[in-house]
Simulated scan of single mutants.
Amino acid sequence: MRKLVILVMGIVGLFYPMQMLLVKANIQPKLEAEDVSYIQVNRLNGETHSFEENNGYEEVIINKVVNWINTSSPSEEAIELELNKTSIVSMMKIKLKNGDVAVIEPAYNCVFENQVKTCMIADGEVIYTRNNKKIRLNSLELYDWLLVGWKYESVGAPKDELLEETLYTRYFSHLDKAYSDFIMCPKIDKVERINFDTRRHIIHASALNYSAHHGGVLFDRIHITLTDTPENGVKINKVTIQKGISDRESRIQCRRES
């Protein structure tokens, strides 16, 4: 009896570390958006598209995808390791600035019947691979985006935003060179007619300082008030600098949060 107990304890001791590794393998993956260089989606039919970190509009898309990864939940279903790669309809590569590459692909559920293995794509689940470690995740948003959502992303600025940028560039040229850094996320906050005249306006504009873009510090914001009239042209009336605005305020300024 004593020998049997020792044998059972020995078996438990052998398998316990393996169980711990399996638990650790299911730890929720965490990424930082600022560590991502680009995201590339490749389709089985040859379609491909990359979203670059240094593109202000595509950076927002990268932030969204990273957030879906970080808020997904581990799945308890098995990870199929012997799938034919030609059956994977879509795959996403996430290139990190440290050289690592993470891969996301759809998850599959497989069954054996009459010695034939049949696999079907698992709705709402993906496989996340990094450093040869695979994790199966539940994320309907990530799954939908991987299969079709990426094709419908708007990667350019809308017309009203382009108009604001054009106006800001015109008025920015009248500022002193001391404010040359305030070129990021320009906005025309308010336009007022002077005495109801459609040719004369008071303009309220704002922008962020570009140097804080990747500096790990809070943004400063410039506020400009000016008049634009046919007889006097552009005249700067007031300039103020708002130091260290919150992350939320900077996201609103850049139209990344309402």
Rank of each mutant, 00 (worst) to 15 (best):
E113I: 09
T198S: 15
I135V: 14
E141G: 04
G149L: 13
E165H: 02
K95I: 07
R199M: 13
R193H: 13
I194N: 09
A122Q: 00
C185M: 04
L137M: 05
I104P: 04
E153C: 05
V111L: 08
K177S: 15
S154M: 14
Y128L: 00
I104D: 03
K93H: 12
D189K: 14
I121T: 11
Y179A: 13
R170P: 03
D181F: 06
D144S: 12
I104A: 05
R193V: 05
I121R: 12
I135L: 06
Y128T: 08
W150M: 06
E141N: 15
R199N: 15
I194P: 04
W150L: 09
M91I: 05
Y168F: 15
V111M: 01
Y168M: 00
R199T: 14
P106H: 06
S180T: 11
I94L: 15
K133D: 03
L83D: 01
E141R: 14
V116C: 03
E165I: 12
Y108C: 00
S154C: 11
S139N: 03
L142R: 04
P158A: 00
K117F: 02
V126T: 08
I94R: 01
C119T: 04
T118S: 13
D197H: 00
K85H: 03
K85W: 01
P158W: 07
V103Y: 00
E161A: 09
N109H: 14
L137Q: 08
T166M: 13
C119D: 02
I94K: 04
I88W: 04
